[in-house]
Computed example of a mutant assay.
Amino acid sequence: MTLTGIDYRAGDILTACDNELNVPTGYLGHSAIVVDEEHIVEAVITYPYVQVGRVADFLRVHPKHAQYRPVDPAWGQAAARYAVWYVQQSDRNKASGVNVPPFSFSDAIPLQDPWTSIYCSKLVWLCYYYGVGYPFYNDFYLFSPEDLDAVLSKDPNFRLVYKHPEFQFFVNT
């Protein structure tokens, strides 16, 4: 299920104001990075924590989302390459018996530390930080899906492709 007339390109960022954790819509959210026309890479709370998924599944589970695209397609391709590499490295770690990175929301771990912990929006941040050399601004605490929307909506290096009419966060995280 894709939205009519909307395409998905490497490096597109999907950020949702809803989630699968029984937290009310607008308070937590979820995010992922598109790696090709049909696939995303995301960090989830269940094992395996870093995984490849389908764009259509993200849209089905998270209808209240926004889609941002880098203005420079080379940025998107570089961020997507990092995301694919990160999944591959995570899979190699697990195959070796090392559960790295574990899923964790911890503000004690620097955002640029890719292996001590991971969560969905931190994964997107890492893809642009290491893949492109572009750090998204983080106002405080964790870098959340709300932060992605707040930052990208004002960043001239990104453009809004789609935003659900009921997409809204209620808390500045």
Rank of each mutant, 00 (worst) to 15 (best):
Q51I: 07
P24T: 07
F140L: 13
T173G: 13
A74Q: 12
S106D: 13
A78E: 14
Y134S: 06
N172C: 07
L111A: 06
N157Y: 12
L123N: 04
V52S: 04
D36F: 11
V151T: 10
W75F: 12
W115F: 05
P70I: 04
V50M: 06
Y130R: 07
K94G: 03
A80V: 08
D149C: 09
D91M: 00
A43N: 04
S117A: 14
D147R: 08
V87E: 11
P48D: 09
S104F: 11
G29S: 08
Y82G: 07
V100S: 15
I118S: 03
S106I: 02
R9F: 12
V124A: 05
L126N: 02
K64V: 00
F140A: 15
S104T: 00
V55N: 03
D36C: 05
G29I: 07
S104Q: 14
R81Q: 12
I45K: 12
V151H: 02
S104A: 11
D139S: 12
Q51D: 08
G26F: 05
P63N: 07
V98M: 10
A56D: 10
A108W: 09
P110M: 04
A10M: 15
A79P: 06
A79W: 02
S117R: 06
G29Q: 11
K122D: 03
Y134Q: 09
G97Y: 09
S90P: 00
I109M: 08
V161N: 05
I118Q: 05
Q67W: 04
T2G: 03
V55Q: 01
R54N: 02
P114K: 01
V61Q: 14
R92D: 07
N93S: 01
I33S: 02
P48Q: 04
I109N: 00
P24F: 13
K94C: 08
V23Y: 10
V161H: 09
T46G: 00
W85K: 14
V71R: 15
E42A: 07
I40L: 10
N19D: 13
M1G: 11
Y47D: 08
I45Q: 08
F140H: 15
Y119S: 02
P156Q: 14
S90M: 00
P135E: 06
Y137Q: 14
D147Y: 09
F158Y: 15
Q77T: 10
Q77K: 15
L152T: 01
R60I: 00
Y128S: 05
C17Q: 11
N138F: 05
L123C: 06
E38K: 13
S117M: 09
D18W: 04
G5N: 11
L126A: 03
C127Q: 02
R69C: 01
K64W: 13
Y141N: 15
Y119R: 00
G131C: 02
A43L: 06
Q88G: 13
A66V: 09
G131D: 06
F105I: 12
V34H: 06
Y129R: 00
N99P: 02
T25A: 03
A74L: 14
V34W: 03
Y137H: 14
V171E: 11
T173W: 15
Q51L: 10
A74T: 10
P63Q: 00
V50P: 00
R9H: 14
A66Q: 12
F136R: 05
K94I: 02
Q77H: 12
D155S: 01
L59D: 08
Q77A: 14
Q77Y: 12
F136E: 06
Y134H: 04
D12T: 08
L3W: 11
W75H: 13
P63M: 09
R9A: 08
